[in-house]
């Protein structure tokens, strides 16, 4: 297991270096300059500003400098979006709200989704099953901005249960955005668990469990649930990254100073080091989650062995 994780970590570093290189050169190909109102500056002024951020050096030197900094954990400084602030600090401060609503949304959505899916599978082809399927379809097909706006209108404006927007009331501010974000994982989990449970409940080992005298609930929870979880983990991992790293739309609607909102703005103003830093941060996050998912597989499904490549 330790050997396997060590090997995976080395692959992760290689992947990251490739992503950093790729993003770096893509950025350089893009038109636009991070220096605000560059056109109005005289060539001399411009040269001074470029020299301060090292933008005057030849491309290979810039690349080398950046990678060297990255290896030391230095993501550089923001050129214009946060005026000289350290990119690592920017990401950390922006990550907080995104992670909170993302985490709450994920947990809420997954738990309710799994429950709905289980009930639907155990009561297959009854009205419970049909209404659970309806919830899943609605959750997947209604865009999150419609759902977020509806929540905002009824629960914040009409009923005044929660603040309309902004990040000022702690947990209360996070409730509506979390619910808005929960819809997609909820629908996905319900769909996956229902399909998988129905399949598992029809398998031979469930018949054997019944032949042993197991009751309905023992079969559902002791025998079937764990086997039905496996495919769900595959989709939940990457989805968690997407949601934890911020949903731009939901953050915009509730005016939450999250990382999604910051990322898009940095692209609009071509803040080179912030774009690079955020991309690398997202990549690390995704790669780590994929590793966790792979380890979870091994825990849930003993057939998948993670012993130094020998299966």
């Amino acid at each position: 297991m330790a050997r396997y994780i060590g090997k995976r970590l080395i692959y992760m570093l290689i992947t990251l270096a490739l992503i950093a290189t790729f993003t770096f050169f893509l950025m350089k190909i893009l038109p636009g300059s991070p220096i605000a109102s560059a056109d109005k500056l005289s060539p001399e002024q411009r040269a001074v500003v470029e020299a301060r951020y090292g933008l005057d050096k030849p491309l290979p030197v810039q690349y080398f400098d950046y990678m060297l900094g990255l290896a030391q954990g230095d993501l550089g400084i923001s050129i214009n979006q946060f005026k000289g602030a350290n990119v690592t600090d920017v990401i950390i401060s922006r990550m907080g709200p995104s992670a909170q609503i993302g985490f709450q949304g994920m947990v809420l959505g997954t738990v309710i989704g799994v429950l709905l899916g289980m009930i639907a599978a155990l009561r297959q082809n009854t009205w419970i099953d049909y209404s659970s399927t309806l919830v899943a379809i609605v959750g997947i097909s209604i865009p999150s901005f419609v759902f977020a706006s509806l929540l905002q209108y009824y629960f914040a404006l009409q009923l005044e249960w929660f603040p309309v927007a902004l990040w000022k009331d702690g947990f209360m501010s996070s409730v509506l955005p979390s619910i808005a974000l929960a819809m997609f994982p909820l629908a996905t989990a319900a769909r996956f668990i229902r399909t998988e449970m129905i399949e598992v409940l029809g398998s031979d080992y469930i018949t054997l469990a019944r032949a042993k005298g197991a009751s309905g609930s023992e079969i559902a929870f002791k025998h079937a649930f764990r086997n039905a979880l496996i495919p769900l983990i595959t989709v939940l991992g990457p989805m968690a990254v997407g949601i934890l790293t911020g949903s731009l739309v939901v953050e915009q609607i509730f005016a939450i100073p999250g990382i999604g909102e910051q990322f898009v703005k940095s692209i609009m103003v071509s803040d080179f080091s912030v774009i690079m830093g955020t991309t690398i941060f997202f990549s690390v996050f995704l790669i780590v989650v994929i590793l966790i998912v792979d380890i979870l597989y091994g825990i849930i499904d003993p057939r998948i062995r993670l012993s130094g490549g020998k299966s």
Partner: peptide, 19 residues
């Protein structure tokens, strides 16, 4: 079931819970 009447199935490859 399992106490007074027990049963063995055809395919041993699928009749045990894999997890």
């Amino acid at each position: 079931r399992g106490k007074e009447i027990a049963m063995i199935f055809q395919d041993p490859m699928t009749s045990l819970n894999p997890t």
